[in-house]
Amino acid sequence: MKEFKIIVLAKQVPDTRNVGKDAMKADGTVNRAALPAIFNPEDLNALEQALRIKDKDSSATVTLLSMGPGRAAEVIREGLYRGADSGYLLTDRAFAGADTLATSYALSCAIRKIKKFDLIIAGRQAIDGDTAQVGPQVAQKLGLPQITYVEEIVEVAKNKVIVKRRLERGVEMVECPLPAVITVNSSAPECRPRNAKLIMKYKHAATLTERQDSSEDYITIYNDRPFLNIEEWSVTDIETVVDQLGLSGSPTKVKKIENIVFQAKEAKIVTADDTGINDLMKELIENHTLG
């Protein structure tokens, strides 16, 4: 039987949902070090959809592709612990400063190099930018059809998928030929947890850079167990037009970043007891805010 190959795009993001008071530096810039780096939540929803295909079809394989700094290998390990088969990390200073267009370009070049795939699945958007642009732009660059806002991959047949899209006011069932790019919403089922056996199997999975400091006899385990290798690609490993990468490949530029200071109002303090609330409700009714 022919192998059904799925690529899942995953991004490591700062956990912007749990921003503490030390998240901003005094000069108004973001203190990235104060934010934990996590697997982008909707990319986990995407991974789950891929793993569900694998559950039903033993010929299916799931490959993760991430772009980011060296430590983004963590999201690939995280994916392996949950059932993915392999991973690629695209990492190079040449990619730095990329907006969504330059990011999509780099990812599409890496996907071209992976070459064989039937389906690409990504989260709808990443929580650090919330743009939802990379999925559709990867599809456009690869000349593939796209389906965004997917809640469930309902059926995978030989050369097509049927998916359910969750939109603002309802659902849509869509049929699409393969290969295709699908982006998954957070309304899709949560990703399964790490699997204890897979943690044992993949806990030494690492990129070449991560292994550099390891001792000689440690290195041999990677020769014996090639599945522990997280493939690491730099700009020279993929075919690109360099000026379409990173900052120079980004049409959008950040002109200004500011911390918003709200016009502070003189707030009236209302005590939470019966008298305080009674007076407040009376006032709101009398000035016709209520009733």
Partner: peptide, 16 residues
Amino acid sequence: PAFGGNIIATIINPDH
């Protein structure tokens, strides 16, 4: 707003 809404960014596309 960017970065989970913790900053406000002004973006421009000068050349495209």
